[in-house]
Design a protein around this nucleic acid. Structure first.
Lengths: 224, 224
DNA sequence: CAGGGGAAGTTGTTGAACGATCTTTCGTGT
DNA sequence: ACACGAAAGATCGTTCAACAACTTCCCCTG
């Protein structure tokens, strides 16, 4: 009864609906600012309004949706403030995780695997895959901290971040520069130079943030 | 648009139900491990099952409730791992917030106010109020980081922490030692000695964690 | 063309219903 | 007496239909 430990892949319908909506948002199928009708979406996903509302509640808490009382939910529109905030949290969490990472931590393998995947995807010119691998790299960094709560926080932030990435259309421009940087961070970490790894990552994140903010200021964002 | 969080006091019924349940858990009225029946609670709170389920969903994501499929929700039982994790996250967030706190930040006033309140409550022997003031002190520390997302994360962690505090019956033992420590941290912060403030806080949190873990190991926890 | 006033559409919430699944009880066999 | 298993009972998961409260949109008026 107590020693199950494995996360049952049994998602209930509300969770499945939430996952569907989440991926639709991240993939850009639902653009920021667009309205999600309970009835229409419920029919489309094959769930009842009540169940769909539970899914909305989850995604709202994740910051992907915004509820306006009696006026429906809309896909959250990334703001300058939210981008800045997300990167501030990322630098804090990832930096500390990397700095305090114990050697030979299991997540280290995930780190290396993510870099390999990204490099392979780059060769293949599959920039979307490069982006996914890069995100996985950062998830693995956070996993180094061995904190279930931090993992959860980061999962939420990742989703919001992907939403913000949507304001840049060119995935190569968005993800390509970081593959080698990831490899460099990984190397420093693997060689036990935690401080260097963290410092590199910090500079890396600052540049990434700047790129996003510049695109935002340039007005690349979807004009809902 | 950034200065005042316009917290509309307009909570829908699900949010109100969640708030009720949350305070019942924190106040110890619902003890860890106890089961919350949808029908019974719905009647007690005057909401329908569907609405109550939305509340459950929120509290589950906050870590206060645990859902067992087809077997109802129970109040989360703090575990050694969760206590350790919570304190790890606290040290990370509060430490960084304090270290990087800009001088004359608005939250500084909240910090001072919390200390004053705690001191007054101690004089009055109102240990519950001391506890609340202490929690507020830490909330204010996190607010120094100026991050909406961090604030939200910390709010969740606070609720879980209060749940864990429930394993110690003696609120004086639990909260009294930290009033003066808070004052000391505040002083260091106010005088611009951010590093000292953060270091003091770190030692403080380690002791607090140790106290909790000791109580847990001693078996003070509720034997549901 | 601006503003006001419905009309129509959506959300918020409830109650009932039914299948699916967990718990408890009860009986049986050793 | 105790372990084991099966049926009964209780509860959850989900849907549907309904209605009030509220928003949004469109049309009408000045």
């Amino acid at each position: 009864m107590a020693e199950r430990a494995n996360d049952d892949e049994v998602l209930d319908r509300a969770e499945k609906a939430a996952a569907d909506i989440r991926s639709s948002i991240i993939s850009g199928h639902f653009t920021p600012g667009s309205r999600l009708s309970e009835q229409a979406l419920g029919v489309a996903l094959g769930v009842s309004r009540n169940t769909l509302r539970e899914a909305f509640r989850m995604l709202t808490q994740e910051g992907l949706l915004v509820r306006r009382p009696h006026a429906g939910v809309i896909v959250a529109v990334p703001s300058l403030a939210s981008i800045i905030d997300i990167y501030r949290v990322r630098r804090m969490i990832e930096g500390q995780a990397l700095r305090g990472a114990p050697p030979r931590h299991p997540a280290g393998r995930a780190l290396a695997a993510a870099v390999d995947t990204a490099v392979a995807a780059r060769e293949a010119g599959d920039w979307a895959a490069v982006g996914t691998a890069n995100m996985e790299f950062h998830r693995a960094i956070v996993a180094l901290a061995d904190s279930a709560r931090l993992d959860r926080v980061y999962a939420n932030i990742s989703a919001e971040l992907r939403l913000a990435f949507g304001i840049i259309d060119d995935p190569e421009y968005l993800h390509a520069p970081y593959v080698d940087r990831n490899a460099s961070v990984l190397r420093a970490h693997a060689e036990g130079r935690s401080g260097d790894a963290a410092d590199e990552l910090d500079a890396y994140l600052i540049q990434s943030e700047r790129t996003l903010l510049a695109a935002y200021a340039r007005g690349d964002r979807d004009v809902h």
